[in-house]
């Protein structure tokens, strides 16, 4: 009797104040969430808007509308050259990283041998090291063997830096793969080769695509490795942009940044089509 009375009395008396605190507290939580969302998108939006300003300096809100900064951008040979350099470097590091990553992921997921855990740790180790340290280490190593800063050194550095991402993406997909699918294929009379191509490889293609996109984007954008390993002549776009941001205050830099944002958006569309964003979040 007393027990049930207690429940009834504590219920409503606590309710009004508790409700009020609840509302304020959650109001605060939602406000922070909204601010975080704003913080994620606003800077990029502002950069894009500023790139259309008619003024010769950066100002917000932008005044007028012009595409002259984009035209200016494409008239600068140095920028175009460095963009091409970046593209070439990214293609190479993506190709090398995936060529190494896919077989390694197979071995790390399906192999049975002593020291497998250690092998896995070694392959994802570069992820624990900041890009700067990877770049510096490669630069110093080069000094030993008379190997200078160059496109090749940058490609190697970026490959080291990105390999763990690619390996982990493919490994995650392989772990999800139901081994019964391959057994089913074999029992239906398919050869091992056919099974590998049509079932195994086909199933991990999304991970390979996502891995390639990530490595490509990271290689294209990367500055921390590039500052130490890129050739002083023929700099990649990221290093070029780094200098522009520091020394050039014209809205042309905003135009260049806007193009990179657009580029990222396109890549994301491709990724969400091929893999799905929820999966990427992991």
């Amino acid at each position: 009797m007393t027990h049930s009375a207690e429940i009834i009395t504590t219920g409503p008396s606590g309710t009004i104040l508790a409700d009020w605190i609840d509302r304020v507290g959650f109001g605060l939580i939602w406000a922070l969430a909204a601010f975080a969302l704003l913080l994620l998108i606003a800077p990029s939006l502002i950069v894009v808007m500023i790139s259309f300003t008619e003024t010769a300096y950066i100002t917000f809100p932008p005044q007028g509308f012009t595409l002259k900064w984009y035209a200016d951008l494409f008239s600068r040979q140095q920028i175009i050259d460095s963009a091409i350099t970046s593209l070439r470097i990214s293609v190479w590091s993506t190709a090398i990283a995936l060529t190494l990553a896919v077989p390694a992921a197979f071995s790390l997921v399906r192999g049975r041998y002593p020291g497998k855990a250690f092998a896995g740790a070694l392959i994802v180790a570069p992820q624990m090291i900041p890009g700067m340290v990877i770049g510096v280490a490669l630069l110093f190593f080069g000094a030993y063997i008379a190997f200078r800063q160059s496109d090749l050194m940058l490609i190697l550095g970026l490959t080291v830096f990105c390999l763990p991402f690619a390996v982990r993406l493919v490994m995650a997909q392989l772990q999800l793969l139901d081994p019964a699918l391959e057994e089913a294929s074999l029992s239906l009379g398919a050869t091992r080769k056919r099974t590998f191509v049509q079932i195994t490889l086909r199933q991990i293609i999304p991970a390979i695509v996502a891995g390639a996109a990530f490595v490509f984007i990271e290689s294209f954008d990367n500055l921390t490795v590039a500052l130490f390993t890129a050739s002083p002549r023929g700099r990649p776009l990221s290093v070029e942009l780094y200098n522009l941001v520091q020394y050039d205050s014209s809205p042309m830099v905003a135009a260049l940044s806007s193009l990179e944002i657009l580029f990222a958006f396109v890549i994301m569309l491709v990724l969400s089509r091929s893999v799905g964003l929820e999966r990427l979040a992991k």
Binding site: D178, A180, E183
Partner: peptide, 11 residues
Amino acid sequence: VGFVFQNYALF
């Protein structure tokens, strides 16, 4: 031999 798997293993 035909094999029907526990979770069917449909592709």
